[in-house]
């Protein structure tokens, strides 16, 4: 699974993207975020408030219970501030 991070999430986690193989218990966006929190202090800091995080699966917005698969590109980022 390809993970991509943007803005302050990227800075707190310390990398822009990575490829991961989560355990079988990770089946949706909510469980992915919970699993990522345990990967280190940067992740825990970046993901402390899941309600402040927006998620795109294969470049489309998704919310908590949305299912994810190993072949997906999952992006995590703060609420957008363009324009």
């Amino acid at each position: 699974m390809k993970l991509i991070y943007f803005a302050w999430l990227r800075e707190r986690i310390g990398i822009a993207e990575e490829t991961v193989t989560p355990p079988a218990s990770v089946t949706d966006v909510t469980s992915l975020i919970e699993w990522l929190k345990g990967r280190g202090p940067g992740y825990a800091l970046a993901l402390a408030k899941p309600e402040a995080i927006r998620v795109a699966v294969n470049q489309q917005y998704r919310k908590g219970p949305a299912p994810i698969a190993a072949s997906d590109e999952v992006a995590l980022f703060p609420p957008v501030t363009g324009g």
Binding site: F6, F77, P78, P79, V80, T81
Partner: peptide, 26 residues
């Protein structure tokens, strides 16, 4: 176009002034 762009298009603004930097909040 602007109202939807502001809340949907995946852009993020980083403001810097001198040594200070912060990500703009939605």
């Amino acid at each position: 176009l602007m109202d939807w762009l502001k809340t949907r298009a995946p852009f993020w603004k980083l403001e810097e002034t001198g040594d200070e930097r912060h990500w703009v909040e939605a």
